Simulated assay, not measured.
Amino acid sequence: MSKVGVNWHTRPKILYSKGVVLDRFKRYLMGIGLRDETVKLYVGLVGGFLDYAEADEPNTEIADAFKDYLIEKRLSRGHINNACFAIKKFYKMNNIEWNFIRLKVNDGLPYYFDEKDVLTIFQVCSNMKHLAMLQTLFYGCLRSSELCRLDDSDLDLKTRTLRLRETKGGRDDIVYISEECVDTLRTYLKMRPQIEVENRFPLFYTDSRNRWSNGDVNRMFTYYKDKARITKQGGPHVFSRHTTATLMIANGCDCRIVKEILRHKDIHTTLRYAHVADKTKRTSYEQYLVL
């Protein structure tokens, strides 16, 4: 893939020290109050941009070329937009104005797993910690980052709820979990010692006694998905967000309730799942199209 749109003979000849630049960028993002997950995302995306530019202070012409490069690679429009937002923040840190045209994200039908897929994934999971994580992820309708941030104090087994802190949008929330999930968590908690990580007690921690990362969760989920011989597209987000929304709507749950359970800001986000809830459509068709 060529780096289009740039005269590489005129690129800035600046000593490349990516780590120093990214540390400064990270401090800048934290200083303007962005959430930890957003900071991590933006730092990673700008790191990729700096690798492409091979310069500490790439000019905006290179940023334009980088966007074209991402488009040529056929990356998702959401990823490209996020990269551009991150680069815009990077330039703003250096008092440079860079504008870009946001790509319209296709409103395609979401992927999802069916009930059999979910149960099979649970059944092939023989590791109690992993099963507890998968069930918490699924029944809590959580994002991977939300699962990773859970502490022992966020779990209330009596009320079958989880407290989420600084979720997408920066707000706190209370979510439900099922009785099956509670039973699994009780068993898990009896088996594992409580440990402290950075002055907090994570509900789930790795074998090396660190907090789980999104990448760790993705690799763990992919392992059990492959073990269950499921070839459908989708990772943890499809499993715990797209699938839960689709199944609830398919089983007759009002879209407005699903919106609240999944903590969507806009009902139109939730309505996407109504299009793939075939069971609900068939039931309604047979119930109301009567002569």
Rank of each mutant, 00 (worst) to 15 (best):
Y176G: 00
A132P: 06
P12R: 01
N7P: 03
T222W: 05
P12M: 01
P110V: 09
R211L: 00
E115A: 10
H79V: 05
N251K: 14
L203N: 03
A53M: 08
L157W: 07
S144M: 09
T187R: 13
N218G: 04
N7A: 00
I177L: 07
T243D: 00
C125Q: 06
L34H: 14
E180K: 12
G31L: 01
A83Y: 11
D23R: 12
S76W: 04
H130D: 12
D64K: 13
R11D: 06
D151W: 06
K281A: 12
G31V: 08
D172Y: 00
R35V: 12
E146Q: 07
L189D: 08
T38Y: 07
K104W: 11
I96N: 01
M191N: 14
E61M: 09
T120C: 10
T243K: 01
N94Y: 11
F85Q: 10
V124R: 02
D207C: 01
P58R: 03
R272Q: 14
L75V: 05
R11V: 15
L185T: 09
R263M: 08
D23C: 04
G140N: 02
C148R: 02
E198W: 00
F204D: 01
K279A: 10
C84I: 05
R11M: 12
A65D: 08
L185R: 05
K281P: 02
R219W: 14
Y69A: 00
I62G: 02
R211V: 11
K168Y: 08
V290A: 04
E260T: 13
V258P: 02
M133Q: 05
E196G: 00
G78T: 15
G33T: 12
L34W: 09
M191L: 15
T60P: 07
H9L: 10
I62H: 01
T283M: 08
C125Y: 10
S17L: 13
T120I: 12
L185V: 10
T136L: 06
